[in-house]
Amino acid sequence: MNTAKRLRHSPVGGYARGEETRHRIIEAAVELFGEHGFEGASTREIAARAGVNAPALQYYFENKEGVYRACVEALADDALKTFGPAIEHAQQVVRENADTATLIDAYLRIQDVMADRTFEKANKPGRRMFFAREQAGYEPESATQILACKIREPLNDASAALLARITGRAANDPLTLIRSFSLHGQLVIFHVAHRSTLSMLGWKNIDAEKAEQLKSAVRDQTRTLLEHWSRERDEALAAAATPTIPAASKARSRKRS
């Protein structure tokens, strides 16, 4: 897949206008790729929705693959701005060997950011479908590679590192990863099964009040599980530290008594 062309600079304000045009094309393309998929969306439709002529789209991106890659890069960069501080905080508390309460709070902070992004996309059908198609494997594989490198791997690594400290298991232990995926899955369901979840709840959309209700419920469930797993860790450590009396010694002790 070709990399999108670098925007040319103009000595008299052309760069700013060019960036605005480029952004408008990307926004239109995200909507159309979401609605029709990569194969179904045409460059002519994208240009028309963005309010530019077809040659302008070719000027900035060369071809449809260039437009699609620019969309993925823009969405990944936007997500990183949101997730970046929570990921950095998670990495910091792990490095500092923070106490369990701080580790749990850091995990919940990541989940709160995930919730905000999930419910934001839920109210933007084009973006939601763009990601849904990519996750389903229907779109160019390079999109998954870009998103994995820029946001998914750092996010999953930070979550697993926190969970490893909370539970006492290794970060790459399959159970650690399964637990982390399942905790985040509480939010993903509202993204991938948007229509059915709203229907079952009797909601038309997820406004600010409903989003907070969902976040609060997921936060409470996650905290309960994390605290339970941390107690299991402590119990296992305590059991390992308790000296065991050999069976022969126990038998001699009973005879003497």
Rank of each mutant, 00 (worst) to 15 (best):
P11D: 13
P85H: 07
Y60N: 06
D99M: 08
K210M: 10
H191P: 08
V12Y: 14
L198K: 08
K150W: 01
I245G: 03
I46L: 07
H23I: 01
E62S: 12
L80Q: 06
L147R: 10
E153A: 15
D220M: 12
R179L: 08
A48F: 09
A48E: 13
V52E: 04
I25M: 04
H228L: 11
E31Q: 04
G34M: 07
S10P: 01
H228D: 02
I245E: 12
T176S: 07
A211P: 08
R8W: 06
T144S: 13
A251E: 09
R49L: 04
S159T: 14
A208C: 08
E39W: 05
K204D: 14
E235T: 11
Q145M: 02
A98I: 03
A161C: 10
R109M: 10
K210N: 10
Q213A: 13
L226S: 07
T242Y: 11
P243G: 05
L201P: 01
A132D: 14
L155E: 11
R256D: 04
M129L: 14
A211N: 09
I87R: 06
H23C: 04
A70D: 02
I166T: 02
T3Q: 03
E31N: 05
R152V: 14
A79L: 14
V94W: 07
L226T: 05
A74G: 01
A86K: 05
D105A: 14
G51L: 03
R95W: 08
A170M: 09
M129F: 08
L147W: 12
A79Y: 11
Y60A: 04
C149V: 00
R109D: 12
A122G: 15
E39R: 11
R252Y: 14
F130C: 03
G137K: 09
T242H: 13
R223K: 13
L162P: 09
N123Q: 15
A29K: 00
I87W: 04
G34Y: 05
S253I: 01
G84T: 00
R6M: 01
A193K: 11
M129A: 15
G84Y: 01
A239E: 13
F38Q: 00
R24Y: 08
I110K: 07
A101Y: 04
V192G: 04
A241M: 08
V67Y: 00
G84H: 02
W203E: 09
A74Y: 01
L155S: 12
D105S: 13
R179K: 01
A239L: 13
K121C: 13
E45F: 01
R252N: 05
W203A: 10
A76E: 07
A70L: 00
F83N: 03
R17F: 08
L103W: 02
R69F: 02
L108Q: 07
A248E: 13
I87N: 03
R44E: 09
S216A: 09
R95F: 06
T222L: 05
M200T: 03
A236E: 11
T222Y: 06
L163E: 01
K150G: 00
G18Q: 01
